[in-house]
């Protein structure tokens, strides 16, 4: 099935709890996919549709950017592991001059592109591993809710340390998933965000937005 058709047929437009000014193609209770089980997902080739949900860390980071446009206006931004791209869209809306949204999953990159169009902004979307290449023009690196798996978190942290060491501003949204060490960044803001896939906000959890230290990349 065509990627765009697959995304459109399995999502509805909805507004994340913390960023109601942004509309995203999301998998909600209204979608048949909501009730899909593991074998259904395998049949559809959709083992991990992270792009269909607006995760807590991404929402917090997006809220932070929307409320402080001066921090991002006119700058070149890279969104690492963009998923549906909520933080990339927030950066574009806040006035970033150029936003590159990257995810290893081609469906995520496609969803981010569709979501951007829905919000009247343009993203450069790429389906590559962002940790495998240099980004010389990038000034700001965004990371929304990627610190959830130990081995990848270690790899990501090392890479972000290098980016910060090169003078890039690295902003991380993390809802205490346990693999982003507080010592690696300065806490800029805290939010109460819906716990994961719950769109309505019946269960809220804390999420922090951090700026990674420029010197001494954490080991």
């Amino acid at each position: 099935m065509d990627a765009i058709q697959l995304i459109l047929e399995n999502t509805v437009l909805a507004r994340p709890f913390l960023c109601p000014e942004i509309r995203l193609h999301l998998i909600t209770e209204a979608c048949p996919l909501w009730r899909a089980r593991e074998p259904d997902l395998q049949r559809l080739g959709l083992a991990d549709p992270f792009w269909g949900f607006c995760w807590a860390g991404g929402q917090a980071l997006a809220r932070y950017l929307l409320d402080r446009p001066h921090q991002i206006r006119g700058r070149t931004v890279l969104d690492v592991g963009c998923g549906g791209g909520v933080e990339a869209i927030a950066a574009a809306r806040a006035g970033a001059s150029r936003v590159i949204a990257v995810d290893t999953d081609p469906l995520a990159a496609e969803t981010a592109r569709l979501n951007a169009a829905e919000n009247g902004v343009v993203l450069e979307t790429l389906a590559v591993d962002p940790l495998e290449r240099p980004w010389p023009d990038v000034e700001v690196v965004l990371v929304g809710d990627l610190f959830y798996e130990e081995a990848f978190a270690r790899r990501l942290l090392g890479w972000l340390g290098e980016q910060a060491g090169q003078g890039k501003e690295v902003l991380v949204g993390d809802p205490d998933r346990g693999h982003f060490p507080g010592a690696a960044g300065e806490l800029l803001a805290e939010y109460r965000v819906p716990a994961d896939v719950d769109l309505g906000g019946s269960h809220l959890r804390r999420a922090g937005v951090y700026r990674m230290a420029r010197s001494n990349p954490p080991g």
């Binding site: 998998i27 996919l33 909501w34 009730r35 899909a36 089980r37 593991e38 997902l41 991990d48 549709p49 992270f50 269909g52 949900f53 995760w55 809710d145 959830y148 798996e149 130990e150 998933r177 346990g178 994961d196 896939v197």
Partner: peptide, 18 residues
Amino acid sequence: RYASLPGIMKAKKKPLKE
């Protein structure tokens, strides 16, 4: 019960210590 998509996706980001 069988886990469905929201549960499966939530589980991807739940803490798992090795």
